[in-house]
């Protein structure tokens, strides 16, 4: 087991190194000179050269990469071209909002998907199965910004129960934070829930058709017991994997929901950075999202190994 953990950690670090190269290359692949862009109309050749030397952009590319990586390792991701704020500060300011929203959305998704997926698998071909499938189909087909706008319209505009947008830290005002969290979490959660529902259903169906489930029934174990201890116990393994991947996707991919709900998270930060060609911020955001994604994957794999004794052994 410990060998497996070490191997997986090593793989994750290697992947992160790969990501860092891609992220670093980003700056050099994107056309245009970032310092020239940053100076804009205030361009002056002397200032330009000073800034160029200070930023290290006049060095050979491999040296630039090593410099950037070594400072990134100690948390120094440079400063924003636009605001002059250290990138790591900007990221840390935004990370909690995105993490909160992503975790909340995943919870909403799981709360929808587990019962819907399990019931529709157990009652395969019955009306409840068709209902769950219909929900899943609609859920994945309709874009999330549409749900977002619809929810804002109904719950903020017409009913006035919840605020339409904005983020409050739960540390400042837990009640307001929760009220503001509900609509974006449900918006992102419905889509996640729809994806997961289909997945839970197929995992449970597959687990139900296993020979050992038939043997468990042939042993005279009650159907509820067989479902809990034999079917779901095996179905968890793929469900947990996909849930982990969904969390990773949510962390990096709720840009649209963040924009619709004016949610000050990483997604909006990254989007603004793209629009403003603020490469250090963009690099930092992508690196952070990739790092968190890899970390979640690593954790998922460790849980996975705990659930399926065959994995750590192989």
């Amino acid at each position: 087991m410990s060998g497996y953990v070490l191997r997986r950690v090593g793989q994750s670090l290697l992947a992160l190194l790969g990501v860092s190269i891609v992220v670093f290359a980003l700056m050099h692949l994107v056309p245009g000179d970032p310092i020239r862009t940053a100076l804009g109309t205030r361009f002056d050749q002397d200032v330009y050269e000073v800034l160029l030397a200070r930023s290290g952009l006049d060095q050979p590319i491999p040296i630039q990469y090593v410099d950037w990586l070594t400072s990134a390792l100690v948390g120094d991701l440079g400063v924003s071209f636009r605001t002059g704020q250290p990138v790591s500060d900007a990221l840390m300011q935004r990370l909690p909002a995105t993490a909160l929203l992503a975790v909340a959305a995943l919870l909403v998704g799981i709360v929808i998907a587990l019962p819907a997926g399990i019931v529709s698998a157990v009652r395969q071909g019955k009306p409840v199965d068709y209902a769950a499938n219909g929900f899943a189909q609609v859920g994945v087909s309709v874009p999330d910004f549409w749900y977002g706008i619809l929810l804002i319209l109904v719950f903020a505009q017409i009913l006035g129960w919840l605020p339409p947008s904005g983020y409050t830290s739960p540390l400042d005002d837990p009640v307001d934070a929760l009220r503001r969290l509900i609509l974006p979490a449900v918006t992102a959660g419905v889509v996640t829930g729809a994806i997961l529902t289909r997945f839970v259903r197929s995992s449970v169906l597959e687990a139900m058709s296993a020979d050992h489930v038939r043997l468990a029934r042939a042993k005279g174990m009650p159907s509820g017991y067989v479902l809990r201890h034999h079917v779901l116990r095996n179905a968890w393994i793929p469900i947990i994997t996909v849930s982990g991947l969904q969390l990773g996707t949510l962390l990096g991919g709720i840009v649209v929901v963040e924009v619709v709900f004016a949610w000050n998270g990483l997604g909006r930060l990254a989007l603004d950075a793209v629009v403003r060609r603020d490469y250090p911020v963009l690099q930092g955001a992508v690196l952070l999202i990739a790092g968190v994604f890899l970390l979640i994957n690593l954790l998922v794999d460790l849980v996975y190994a705990k659930l399926d004794p065959r994995i750590a052994a192989s």
Binding site: D211, L215, P222, N234
Partner: peptide
Amino acid sequence: ERQLLEYRGTRVGYVFQDPMTSLNPVH
């Protein structure tokens, strides 16, 4: 179904074909 639980496994024992899949891998 409920009544049959008293017969399955207790009075009628089953042995199935494929030993590679007849056992639950996680238990």
